[in-house]
Every structure is written in structure tokens, then in C-alpha cells.
Simulated scan of single mutants.
Amino acid sequence: MSHETVYAIASGKGGVGKTTTTVNLGTALAQAGERVAIVDADLGMANLAGFVSLTPDSTTLHDVLSGNASIDDATYRITDNIVAVPSGTGLDEYADTSPEGLREVVADLRERFDYVFLDVGAGVSHETVLPLGLADAVVLVSTPEPAAVHDSKKTLELTERAGGEVSGLVVTRTRPDSDVSYEEIAARLETPLLATIPDDPAARESVYAGTPLVVYEPDGPAAGAYRQLAADLAGIAVADTTVDADAAAESETADSDDETTEGSAEREAAHDDVSSAITEAESDT
């Protein structure tokens, strides 16, 4: 296993597929039997709350960071081996939070799970910079568009100032016939190119279907690319990671008998509820 177990998934701007990347990396590793926690570290513009179908009085990371709840109270079981720690969506709740408490949250989850993914907010603020320094490594997500690449440079600089380390770049919505060199984009940012995620219609379909892409269309090119990325980050095999649609037909049902994540505070969201919730959670794609 890789020694890096806490990853901050970050982007310079919204709308580049950051949450999609977070959810699919986590799901791919959970399918491989790894225990995974996804944390919505975007405290001001939370988008994972719907992922676990929260009710208005549900406990969230906001409650934890305001000192009114434990991390167990805000941990929700999604399916086998994967849980989510969502942030709240209310402005009043956000105003009461202390971002510094995220240090203790990450330390706690690091001890209990094999991998922790922090879905970091875009922009420049203390709550955005803090997770970049708490993670073992930062995965930078960007589309090939110049504006997104330009903003990625800012995130690289913020990571350096926070004392963090960028693992590399993931370029989403790539096209085989594009005249853009994705390797050149990574070189311009002076960071390794970790993966390119093909522009796949199934990605958006999976959002509206309320299912992570690696489950919704496991044989597709984008799902294969996410599985390959998960395998590379973790240094493990996560089923067939070939990105070619015809060659990526390996079923991942062998993982269905993996032990479920334990914890008295982890509550399983109903499948039908999650179906509509992921659409809301993935709104930055």
C-alpha cells in the first residue's frame, strides 16, 4: 500500500469534476476492499450533503467543527467500505465553525480508515488552504481550458505555502482528437500528469442516475481511467484498470462480500435516497 493515505482533491476553480473525481476514486478503492472516508472539506459551499440524503436536523461536519458533535455523529455509511462526512449547507452553521478543528478530524479518520479523501473547496481562503497542508498529498484536478489551468497554478502555490505536497495533475474531459498536449499542461505546471479522464457522456448520465461512474458504467473509458488512477495512487489492483472500453469488461462483483465498515455512528443511506442525492452532490461537474 502507498504510504500516502490522506488525499486532498483540489482545483483552482469549480466545475472541473473535482467532486466526481473524489467520489469515483473513493468508490473504486472501496470496491477493492479498502476502507474509505470521503470528507466534504468545502465548508462554505458544501456539495456532499445530498450524497447521504441528510434531513434538516442531521449532524454534519459543521456541528463537529463548532464543538457540538463528535466525528462519529457526522459519519454516514454509503455502502460497503465507504462512508461520507458531509458539511452543512446553512450559512448560520457555517458561521459557527472553526476550520482548525479539521486537523483533529483528519487525524481521527486517518487512524480508522485506509484512505481519506478531502473534497476541497475552490478559491482562496483559510478553510481552502488548511486541507492542502493536512493531506499527505494533493491531487490537482483541471480541465484543459486555459482558465482552469491558470487557476490550477494558484492552487499549486497555495499548497506550497500550506506546507503540502502536490502528487500530480488529473486532467478531466479530455478528447483523443484534441490538439492540446496534456503532458505539456502538466509540464507547464511543473507537476506530474497522474491521469487523463476521457470526456465520456456516461459521466454526466451517472450524475443524474445517482450512481458513481465506476458503478454506473464500469466498462466505459472514463470509469476505467478512474480505476487506473485509484490503482496508481494506492499501489494496488482495483479490478481491471484498462481504460479501453472493450478491454475493461472485468466485473467488480467479487468485492461484494467484503466486510462492511464498522462504527456505531455510521448509518447506511437508503439506495433510493442516494440516487437523487448524488445529483445534488455532483453539481460541480
Rank of each mutant, 00 (worst) to 15 (best):
S66K: 12
V6R: 07
P144R: 08
S181R: 12
Q31N: 09
T97G: 08
I197V: 14
G26D: 07
E190D: 15
T155V: 15
G26L: 04
R77A: 13
G164F: 06
H150Y: 10
V170T: 03
A195N: 08
A248G: 15
S53Y: 03
A254K: 07
G133I: 05
R173A: 09
S276K: 09
L109G: 00
V274W: 11
L140K: 00
E266F: 15
D199M: 07
V180C: 07
E205R: 14
V171P: 01
R204H: 13
V129C: 01
T196W: 01
G164C: 07
S98D: 15
Y208S: 12
D57A: 11
E111I: 06
T196V: 11
D108W: 11
D63N: 12
T20F: 12
V171N: 05
Y115S: 00
K18H: 08
R112A: 15
A10H: 15
G44I: 13
V274N: 02
V116G: 00
E111C: 04
A195E: 15
D219P: 03
T241Q: 04
D272I: 09
H150T: 15
D42C: 06
E282A: 08
T242V: 08
Y7G: 02
E127N: 15
A187T: 10
R173S: 12
V238Q: 09
A46W: 11
A270P: 06
A247Q: 09
S11E: 05
A247G: 01
A187V: 07
V171S: 02
V243A: 05
E282S: 10
I38W: 03
R227V: 07
P198T: 05
D136A: 02
S256F: 13
V116I: 00
P131Y: 04
L61R: 03
G121R: 01
T242F: 02
L29D: 06
A95E: 15
T196C: 07
A269G: 08
S178W: 06
A245E: 15
D57G: 05
L25G: 10
H150F: 11
S70Q: 14
A225T: 05
A137V: 01
D240F: 09
R35T: 13
D72G: 10
S264V: 13
R110V: 05
L193A: 04
H3P: 11
S98R: 12
A245L: 14
P201C: 11
V85M: 02
A265P: 09
D40A: 06
S58A: 13
D273F: 05
D255I: 05
S87F: 10
D96P: 01
S206M: 07
R173Y: 02
T211R: 14
V215Y: 09
